[in-house]
Amino acid sequence: MSAYLIRRLLGAVVVMWAVATLVFFMLRMVPGDPFLAMVFDTGDPAAADDMRRAFGLDKPMYVQYLKYLQQVLQGNFGNSIYGSGIPVSQIIAEAFPRTMSLTLLGFFMALIIAIPAGLISALKKHTAIDHGVTVVAFLGLSMPDFWLAILLIIVFAAQLHWLPAIGYVALDQGFWPWFSHLIMPAIAIGTPFAAIIARMIRSSMLEVLKADYVQVARSKGLKHSYLIFMHAMPNALIPVITVMGIALALLMAGAVVVENVFAIKGLGRVLIQGILNRDYPVVQGAILVVSVIFVLANILVDMMYTVIDPRIRYQ
């Protein structure tokens, strides 16, 4: 098990290196220049050259690349080019908790909606409830997240005044302020995912209910609820775990867009602004952090298999 984990982590390092390299060169292939834009107003190209030198961007590209790798290995993501030159790590440290809160809350909202919906529609197969869930699921799946976000704002913030329309409050300032700001964006990004999971749970539950061991459990006279929750459901959830890693990607991607609708200064906003400003260190740092989360989440998912399914053991 630990040997497996070490192997996976080594693999993760390779993936991180590939991501860092790819992003580094791709960014530099994007037309445009961070400094020319900044000095556009003053129109002094010499000032741009000075700044380029200050950030080491006048050196050949391979020198820049090696220097970048060296810095990253030391845990230094560099300084933001645009604005006041604050360290990228500081920008990320500020934005990351917001995006992570949003993503995780979206994830939980999705599961809270999807698991009961999927179970009910499997247990009440081909009834009005089942068809209703199916219709809602397809609606949820085909609705763009930013549009759902706007609808939510119109209804719950503008009309009903139940929830704040925009902004973010850190969790350490109390649960409700944090939750009330995040619940709408979380639902907006979680809904498509909830729709997928609900459909998956429905079909895998129907499959499991036909399994021999469920028939056996029934023949033992077990109570229906016990049978469903203790025998059938854990088996039905196995395929769902598989998509959780992918789901996290979906949710993070959703967060990047939806953060902008709700004016939450998370990684999404950082990334988009960074790209627009050609702020290389910021974009490199933010993408690296996102991909670390991603790789770790996938390792975590694979570890979760061993918890729920005793047949799976890694060597």
């Binding site: 399994a211 021999d212 061991y213 028939q215 056996v216 459990a217 029934r218 023949s219 033992k220 006279g221 077990l222 109570k223 203790m230 025998h231 854990p234 088996n235 729920i308 399914d309 005793p310 047949r311």
Partner: peptide, 24 residues
């Protein structure tokens, strides 16, 4: 009926390989 199943009438099935819940 549930109180009779397993208690007064019990059943052995054909497929031992799939008759036990793999997760329990």
């Amino acid at each position: 009926m549930r109180r009779i199943r397993g208690r007064r009438i019990a059943m052995v099935f054909q497929e031992p390989m799939t008759s036990l819940n793999p997760l329990l």
